[in-house]
Computed example of a mutant assay.
Amino acid sequence: MRTEDLFREDATLLDCDATVIAQGEGGVLLDRTVCYPLGGGQAGDTGWLVAGERRWRVTDTRKSKEHPEAIVHLIEGELPALGTAVRVEVDAQRRQAHRRFHTATHLLCALLPYPVDGCSITEAYARLDFHTDEPFDKDAIQAGLTRLVAEAHPVGHRWITEEELDANPGLVRSMSVQPPRGLGRVRVLEIDGVDLQPCGGTHVSNTVEIGAVLITKIEKKSAKTRRVVLGFAEPAAGRS
């Protein structure tokens, strides 16, 4: 059982047609989806499944525990029946926040050349934990982040083989999350002239789309861990 993950190739897709192929694990599995499942430090997408006049709220999206290549859409209330044709709609505001924050964390990796031992990307904030005992200069990091956003670097992805990744172990920056193995290929995120590393998350297509992102906090979490927390400069938009 497998879910075609359309978001891997195009993070701007906000809807698609799909069919319910199974029920279980608190929701439904679809044959295809635009919803990103929780993983790699990034929160799962929310949204809706629509069939005619019926609308089901998708409260979260997760990787299936029973079917490694399938994605579970957690649903409020009664589940749509097996075989139901639905329209999958992503919460666009939440998706865009994830895209902006996730790409911004890659800029931080370019500015701070230390291994990453923790990551969280949500709609409200993002954080990266760096494995180092070096002190961080908040103003200098903020200036670098603002510069890289304004320089409008193109952002894209490509696929490399697992052998290519093994030949370039320095591409992997994370100590806590390793690229998935066994598929024969690995997705890498490339910010032109700035950063290249394995990543399966959703991103903007150019750094200028990140907009105004601020370093809200830098913490010493342990003798060997420095945490950087990001927030948006503008207030959160209201929901209808």
Rank of each mutant, 00 (worst) to 15 (best):
L214Y: 08
I71Y: 00
D133H: 09
R62M: 11
A237M: 14
V90E: 11
R226G: 01
A70T: 02
V86Y: 02
W159H: 14
D195S: 12
V186H: 00
A150T: 10
M175Y: 09
I215M: 03
D5F: 13
V116T: 02
G144M: 03
A124G: 10
A110N: 15
R226A: 02
V155W: 12
D45L: 02
R94W: 09
V188P: 04
Q23H: 12
L145N: 07
D15P: 08
E76V: 04
S120Q: 14
G193D: 08
I160T: 08
R239V: 09
A104V: 00
T225A: 05
A70N: 03
G44N: 06
R187H: 08
H203C: 04
E4D: 13
L38R: 13
G40F: 01
F136N: 01
G27K: 04
I215G: 03
R57K: 15
A43M: 06
A51T: 03
T3P: 06
P179M: 00
R62L: 12
T146Y: 07
T202S: 02
V204R: 00
T61Y: 02
I21Q: 14
A104P: 00
W48I: 08
E78G: 09
V208C: 12
G211A: 01
S64H: 04
A124Y: 09
P68D: 11
S64I: 00
A236C: 10
W56L: 03
G47Q: 00
K63R: 14
K220N: 11
H106R: 08
